[in-house]
Every structure is written in C-alpha cells, then in structure tokens.
Design a protein around this nucleic acid. Structure first.
Lengths: 235, 235
DNA sequence: TTGTATTTGTCCGTATGTATC
DNA sequence: CGATACATACGGACAAATACA
C-alpha cells in the first residue's frame, strides 16, 4: 500500500474543514501535533499545510498557528469561471461543424504543425452569461485525437478527452487581444456595429509540454467579461 | 546578510529565462547540478523549481528534467506585477497625482468602503510594450497605508508596502471588460478613434482575505494584449 | 529484454532563525 | 525572559520514471 502521505494529510484535513468538523476561525493543531498524529515528518506536514493555504482553507500565521478560514465567505464568492471547459449549458450550444482538415497557414503557426498534418476543426457557437454570443474555433491534432464524432457534442469535450483518451491537460496559456473581425466570422457574430472583436486564444499543453489543443474564442465587445483568480504561491 | 536562498535561486533563474540566457525548449541544469552551483540543498533547489513551474517558466518532467517553456512575454504574463511591481523598470512612467480622498460611489462599491473612509488615489500613465499607453488608477485604503509619498514612485510601490509596512498580497482577482471611455480619461488616453476602452480591474487581497488595494487600468483597443498562465493541480 | 546510471518525487530527522505570547 | 509555533535550510534515504547500452 503505497500512498502519498502529504496528499493524504491534505485531503483528510480539507474534508474535515469542509464538513465543519474543524470550525472556521479556530486554529489547526500545531505542526508538531500533526507530526505526531500522522506519524509524518514536519516537512511533509508543512507541504500539506501549504496546499491547504494555497487552496484557501487556512491562513498560516508565523509564530501563532494556522487558522481555518470560512470557505463560504472567501473562495466561493469569487467569480471564477473557466471560459472554455464549462460548456455544460448545452441547450445554448450550437455545433456548426466538425471536420478533419489540413491546417492553413495560421493554424500551422499557432499549433506548430505542418501542412500535411491532420487537425480536427470544431466550430461552435455558444452563449455566455445569458445573452452574449461567442464563437469558438477549436483545434485538436489528429495525432492525439484519432476519432471525434458529433456525439461528443452532448458531452463535455474535455471529459471525453480525459476519460476516454486519457489525455490530461497540464497547463494552459491564455492570450487576449482585440482585432478586426475576420470575414469568416461575419455569419456567426451577431453584433457588427463595431469592426473589432475580442479574441481569446487558449493553448492547452500536456504534461510533456506537447501542444494538445488550441482554441480561438471570438467575443463581441459588448458584454465581454473575463475573470481570473490568481493565488500567490508560497515556497 | 540574511537572504532567502530559495527565492534567490528562483529570481536568478527566472531572470535568465526572461532575458533568454536560458533558451525555451531546452533543459535546465539538473537539480543536483543546481545544488552544486548554488551551494544549496536539494530541497531548497526543488522549492525554487516548484515556484518556476507554478509561474509558468518551466515544466518538470519526472525522470527527464525541467524544460524551459516559451513565455510569450513574461512581463505581461503577470498582470499584477506589470501594474505594481515593475514600476522601476519603466522610465516611461508618469505619475500624475497622489491624493488622499474620500471615495466616490464607484470606489465605495468596488472596495467595499464607506464615504467617510479615506483612500489613497494614485494616477499614473505608463507605456506597455514600447508604444501602448496605459492609464492606471490605483487605490489603497488608508487603514492599511497611512502614509504614501511621491518618493515611492522611484521605488516599487509593492516593495515599499511589503518591506516597510509588512503587507503581503495573498491572492488577486482580475476582471477584464470593454466599456465606453469615461470622460475623465480623455486627457490621458491618446487614441480616441474608438469610443471603447478595455478596463482591467485588479483586486488585491491580503492573507486574511481583506481587500487591500484596487487598480483600474485603461487600455486602448489597439495593441491590447493580455497573457495568462494557468497550471492544473500541483501535488 | 535486462541492467545500470541519471533525474525527479517523496519522505525523514535535525538544526537554526524568527515571530508570538 | 522563556516556551511555543512557524520559516528556512541541510543532508540523507529510497522510489519511480527515463534513457541508454
């Protein structure tokens, strides 16, 4: 039975905090007490506590202890929204096209693939926050995703990729710019009172740093909103 | 001379990556090599590497090494550092005004303070990426920052706050929208060919989740760009 | 296929410094 | 002042993934 002791401590403590077995605004047992409780070294306990702090469960105060935060009052109240993956409001999603193509010059550059490679192109419309219309152009290299059918539109695409194909995103680079509307988007974007659109480009990478997928999302200027939440990491 | 060795290693490596002394898609020296280079223990080196990975500089691959990622523009990858930390690198910064004010209705709402509270307002112009002009409106609650002089403009404001006042940012919420240019920005923003501006709002919170400062940055549509790096779970 | 060296991942025990009370 | 608690650092140990012969 080989387990990650640090994560075990983290999960046990985080569950207790979530279930309110450990009450907000009280102190956790001291690091030395936790060392005894879990028969672990202090470094291991500290790594677990750092994870808890990073995820907003506790606040560490030097010389005093680790105080348990009220999660309802902190984490959940921040509008953290994933702009790509939460496609679950399927009623408002429209799948325009799924096609296996040879990438054009633009995609070749963005995805670092050659003209002779094959790439899945998915064209999708969706509404965000009720009314705003968004056009997504998603690309997956065929070397990673051999098959892709229309069926997946009823599922989350990423769930399909993770659970069926065992592909795991490790990190994402996001890039936001304002550009003139490309002509091919005229048919899809509803508001053309302004020549500009906002383009959000997401580059998704696997653990081996290979570029796994690329998404361009086109937003009208009206009602565009983007939220990000960044926690500072403590060594 | 007491310094944090882990952070020293982090800064030295991150600067080398930013300056391209260490090239993307190559490997960092192995952990053991870094141990020798910096006369540090492996745990310390590993903590520095974890910070680099968290901030998107490198990707660690078990059994292989740490590969350097291609950061489009490392400065703007961290919107908060751009607006606050790195003010000393920009000889193109102009400090328009520092004033202790009673917040107007808008700021009262954003910062959750009352009309009778006092708030520092800092108006600053800067150029980003050479030509793009950005207007920053920064606010600090007087309860956290009793004194703020023009002298700090030559230093990093955040360094001043951290080292002198012992205030530490714990997390940041970023919000990007497109809005019509407010009239009071007309004097500052150079391009008025478009009625819209991009507004980046940063909410900085302390470790105890209290809202510590608030920044509004105004960008023209032209040449606006925003980068973000997000890593999925860190064990 | 097998074995060996390298590299990263996890964990331990100890020591010293610093902040709080 | 001393006791407690967290912060940083060190050196060692073993496991797991990788690369290579």
């Amino acid at each position: 039975m080989k387990k990650n002791k640090c994560l075990t401590i983290y999960h046990e403590l985080s569950h207790k905090i979530q279930k309110r077995d450990l009450k907000p605004n009280t102190f956790l047992p001291s690091e030395n007490q936790l060392v005894n409780q879990y028969s672990a070294s202090r470094e291991t306990v500290r790594k677990a506590l750092n994870l808890l702090a990073h995820d907003g469960y506790i606040q560490k105060i030097k010389g005093k202890g680790s105080i348990i935060l009220d999660i309802n009052n902190s984490l959940d109240s921040f509008p953290f929204e994933d702009t790509i993956y939460l496609t679950e409001n399927r009623d408002t999603n429209i799948l325009y096209n799924i096609e296996l193509i040879n990438p054009d010059h633009h995609i070749q550059q963005r995805m670092n693939v050659s003209m002779t490679d094959y790439v899945w192109e998915i064209l999708r419309g969706r509404t965000s926050k009720g009314k705003e219309f968004v056009l997504d152009k998603m690309y997956f290299s065929k070397s990673f995703v051999p098959n892709l059918t229309r069926e997946i539109r009823k599922e989350s695409i990423l769930e399909f990729l993770e659970e069926k194909l065992r592909l795991k995103i490790s990190f994402i680079q996001t890039e936001i710019t304002v550009e003139e509307s490309p002509r091919e988007t005229y048919n899809y974007l509803k508001f053309r009172n302004n020549p500009y659109v906002i383009i959000v480009r997401n580059y998704g990478y696997l653990e081996d740093t290979s570029l796994f997928h690329y998404v361009e999302s086109y937003y009208n200027l009206d009602n565009f909103h983007y939220y990000n939440f960044e926690r500072y990491y403590q060594p």
